[in-house]
Amino acid sequence: MNKLKINTLGKYIQLCRLDNPIGIWLALLPCIASLIQASDGIPNLNRLFIFSLGAIMLRSIGCTINDIFDRNFDCNVERTKNRPIANSTISVINAIYFLILQCIFCIPLIFFINKNCLLLSILLIPLIIFYPLCKRITYWPQLILGICFNFGILMAWIDTRNNLSLSAIFMWLGSIFWQIGYDTIYAYSDIKDDLKIGIKSTAILFKESGKKYISIFYILTIIMWTINGILLSYNRLYFLGILIISIHFIWQVFSFNINLTFNDDKYKNIKIFRSNLLIGVIVTIVSYLGLF
């Protein structure tokens, strides 16, 4: 019985991707960087905890919603066929109950953010719901995901300062372009399956020109984050970090192979995607070091 409960718990952990935390880090680190920037290097520990928990919960909720909507697609995609709803180890009704429980768990968080931040967070809800549906109607689901994933940047700033500065907007835009770039790399893993089942993505849109467009989005990321640093009057350490990020982006583009699928890219293209954790770490660190 205990083994059965552990296995069941494991399936729900898998459903909300807590067993694969790279997505949590990619959402959380830019948010922490924004908290550091908005607080002049010393973020409130309570606020740091609330936004970290919020990033984990919102990402988990997004994954649950995504898997409910995509269950009939996921079972036909090599990378996603073993997801709990797709392989029927979690029923749709139980997934909905779990989603309601996740939302209830998030309710107390609203009492720890200010009114303007709360209003901003309300705008995020329809975007989270719309993301899995937009893959059916647009080749730009990575854009919608980038907006959702990085909303914490704006929320962190407005909760800390009760206003929204131009520097925060540039940080947000840069993070969106960054996400479109790295998530396009990720999307190439599924391109053959997605074409068969009718799912749209930037990978399908860009086709053989993937490296060129990923390069453009990474260049836009560097420009946006550089402007962010200029507006915040950051020192050379920040811009040194941006230079290191630029070099890493160059490595990603040259190493990326658009012709590899999930079966043969898990040790290359997926590794390149996961290497963006380093980008998040660097931008967070230099957001602090750039102040001094």
Score class of each variant (00 low, 15 high):
D40E: 13
D40P: 10
G41D: 15
P43R: 14
N44A: 01
N44S: 07
L45G: 08
N46D: 08
N46L: 14
N46E: 06
R47M: 15
R47H: 14
L48C: 10
L48Q: 13
L48M: 11
F49C: 15
F49V: 15
F49I: 14
I50C: 14
F51D: 09
F51S: 13
S52K: 12
L53T: 02
L53F: 12
L53E: 04
G54K: 00
G54E: 03
G54N: 02
A55K: 07
A55G: 09
A55C: 12
A55R: 10
I56G: 07
I56N: 03
I56Y: 02
M57G: 08
M57N: 01
M57C: 09
L58H: 00
L58P: 06
R59T: 06
R59E: 01
S60M: 08
I61V: 08
G62F: 01
T64V: 11
T64K: 03
T64F: 04
T64G: 05
T64D: 01
I65V: 15
N66Y: 00
N66W: 04
N66I: 05
N66K: 03
D67P: 02
F69D: 01
D70A: 08
R71C: 07
N72K: 15
N72E: 13
N72G: 09
N72R: 09
F73G: 00
D74P: 00
D74F: 06
C75R: 10
N76W: 03
N76Q: 14
V77F: 05
E78R: 06
R79N: 05
T80K: 01
N82D: 05
N82E: 08
N82M: 06
N82P: 09
R83C: 02
R83D: 03
P84S: 10
P84Q: 06
P84H: 05
I85W: 08
N87V: 08
N87E: 08
N87W: 08
N87Y: 12
S88E: 12
T89D: 11
S91E: 13
S91L: 15
S91P: 13
S91R: 07
V92A: 12
I93Y: 11
I93L: 10
N94A: 11
A95W: 12
A95V: 04
I96D: 03
I96V: 04
I96C: 01
I96S: 11
Y97I: 02
Y97P: 02
F98N: 00
